[in-house]
Structures are given as structure tokens and as C-alpha cells.
Amino acid sequence: MTGAEANRRRLLGAACSTAAAAALAGCSQYSEPVRRLRFATGPEGGPYNAFGRALTTAVARRTGRLRIGPVSTAASVDNLRMLDDGSAELALAMADSAQDAVRGLPPFSRPAAVTALARVYVNYTHLVVPANGPVRTVQDLAGRPVAVGAPGSGAQVVARRLLRVAGLTGRRSVRERELGLAESVASLRAGSVDALIWSGGVPTPALSVLARQLPLRFPPLDGQVSELRERYGPVYTAVTLPAGSYGLEEPVGTIGVGNYLMARAKVPQRAAREVLQVVFDEWRVLLREVTAGARLEPRFAISTGEVPLHPGAVAYYRSVYG
């Protein structure tokens, strides 16, 4: 090899090294690390958990920089506490529990640092009893064993408020059984409780299965809506279990409560906007396993009452809808 050839090879090697270094620098300049957000959902088999799994899959498919890890919980109250203490970045929560969290009302000892991304759908309160049993109205629950939801769940918050406004306190109190949905269904089927109170989408799959195994009655609850609103605010609305659900021949009036997709205030605005983009693009898939016939619309989504919208959510709605 001549001296000229050796010099030429050294120059080519230096050029290749420089190009490689530049390429690496370019990658580090323009690529971003994957951001991971923990998502507090609900118990396995429940609607919050189903929503969380669906959103996890959709985000992984649609975004390159964002990943969501769903975490099973007791649901609303637990989820809000996890947001506040930093053990989760995203969560689902019922509107009444979220309102209590920002107000710092029991079971929260102080105002929680939580924000909303969107109101995503409405829960329907179900009072479920055997059709051949003695319970025909909420008043008939007095003194009876009733499954009121798991500790830390939003369903339990609604159940206890319902019983309170119905006057089922003191000597007329029910015998509460703190059970999650699966345990409540099993207990009603076995006859160890006379009723269960549940708040969820329509139809709730576990209740649809139960209705095929045991004739059920759904006593109306809409008569308690005005008292709930007077005591606790407009988070409660009158809604209707539609005919056909669970074999119902006629619609049944009941209590509606919104569900919020929540976030810690410290979640970066860009991440919040990316999550919302996926939610609005994929809402049909996300809600398919949660509640039938629901739609997600901006005017509905921004209705989060006293719970402030995350700055990233505000920016998203302004950019898309003006």
C-alpha cells in the first residue's frame, strides 16, 4: 500500500466516523424517551378495568412516545388517592368522588391535586333484587342485608348516599355488606344478601349474566335524585335503564353519575393532549365494553363541574374545537 492510499483510507475512515457520530447526535437530538403513565383503573373484570385495557392498547398502537400501564384498584376513591400521592398519573373516577377530592371532603382529609381530562360516560345506579323477593322499593331495604360496593369504590359512595337520602338510617338502617361486584352477584344468587347496589354502564355484563340465571327486579331510584342534588350537588342526574336491558319490559328511572378520565396536574401537557387525541379517535372501541349506546362529544366531555380541567386538556379542546 502506498502512502497516498494509506492517507486516503485514513480520511475515509475519519469521514465515516464523523458521519456516524453526526447520525447518532441527530437521533439523540430528535428522538424522545418513551413516557410511561400509570393508569389507576378498577377491579379485574369491571368496566374501569376494561376501559383501561382498551386505552392501553389504543395508545400503544397510535403513539410512539407514550405508553400506559393499567393498575387494578378498588376504583374511584382509591384512584383519586393514587393520583394525589403520585402513585398513578392517570385514573378513572366517578364525578361525586372527584368533586369530594377537590373539595377535600371525607373520605379525603384535604383537597387533592387532581384534574380532569374528560367526562367520558355516565354510570347508572342499579338496585338489584330477586324478582320473587319482598323488596319492591328502596324503602323495603330497611333492616335487610345489602351489598353496597367494595371499600374505596365510587359505587359504595353512591350506595351510602342513596340509603341516607332514602331515610334508611338509625333503626331503619340496612345491614351493609362491603362487597365488590363479583362478590355481590354471588351473594345475591346465594341468597346471603337481599339486594345489591351497583353503579356502572348499561348493560353491566355481570348483571346480564345474573339476569339469565335468576329473575331480577330493578326498583326505581329516580325519586331520590332531587334530594341527592340538593345535598351533594348537580353531579347526580335522572337517567333511565332502557327496556330490554337485563330483560326489562319497561324502562326504569334511576340515578346517573358521570365518570371522569383524570390526571395528575404534573402530567406534561403534551402527554395529556396525546391521550385525549387517542380517546376522541377511539371512543367507540373504548366504550364498547363499558356501556352501550354512549357517545363522546366535546360539549359533554368538558362538563366536569368543580373538577378543573388539566391545562393540556384545555389546550387540546381549544386547538380542536376553538
Rank of each mutant, 00 (worst) to 15 (best):
G3S: 15
R9H: 12
L11Q: 13
L11T: 14
L12Y: 07
L12S: 10
L12I: 11
A15D: 06
C16M: 15
C27W: 12
Q29M: 13
V34H: 10
V34W: 07
R35N: 09
L37G: 08
A40Y: 05
G42Y: 00
P43Y: 02
E44W: 14
G45C: 09
G45P: 05
P47C: 09
A50K: 00
A50G: 02
A50R: 02
F51W: 10
R53H: 11
T63A: 14
T63W: 06
G64P: 04
R67L: 13
I68N: 00
V71K: 00
T73A: 02
D78L: 04
D78R: 03
N79Y: 04
R81S: 10
M82W: 01
S87C: 11
S87I: 08
A88T: 03
L90W: 01
L92A: 06
L92E: 03
A93G: 12
M94F: 14
D96R: 06
S97Q: 07
S97D: 11
A98M: 02
Q99H: 07
R103E: 15
R103Q: 15
P107L: 12
P107Q: 14
V114A: 04
V114W: 00
V114K: 01
Y124K: 05
T125D: 04
T125L: 06
P130Q: 04
A131G: 12
V138I: 15
V148F: 07
G149W: 01
G152N: 06
G154L: 03
A155P: 01
Q156A: 14
Q156G: 11
R161I: 15
L162A: 06
L163A: 13
L163I: 13
V165L: 09
V165A: 11
V165W: 07
T169C: 12
R171Y: 07
R171V: 14
S173I: 02
R175F: 04
E178R: 14
E178S: 13
L181I: 11
A182H: 08
A182N: 10
E183W: 05
S184K: 01
V185A: 01
A186S: 13
S187Y: 05
S187D: 05
D194I: 07
L196I: 09
L196D: 01
W198A: 14
G200S: 11
V202Q: 01
P203N: 11
P203H: 08
P205H: 09
S208G: 15
A211I: 08
L214T: 13
L216D: 01
P220Y: 01
P220C: 06
L221H: 02
S226V: 13
E227C: 02
R231C: 08
Y232T: 07
G233D: 04
P234A: 14
P234R: 11
V235N: 00
T237N: 03
V239R: 05
V239T: 12
P242F: 01
G244Q: 03
Y246V: 07
G247Q: 09
G247S: 11
E250K: 11
E250R: 14
I255G: 02
I255M: 03
G256I: 02
Y260K: 05
M262F: 07
A263K: 00
R264L: 15
V267D: 04
Q269A: 15
Q269R: 15
R270H: 12
R273S: 14
V275M: 07
V279K: 04
L286D: 03
V290H: 06
R295M: 12
L296T: 08
P298N: 10
F300P: 01
F300W: 08
I302K: 08
T304C: 08
G305R: 01
V307G: 00
P308V: 05
Y317H: 10
Y317Q: 07
S319G: 15
Y321Q: 07
G322Q: 13
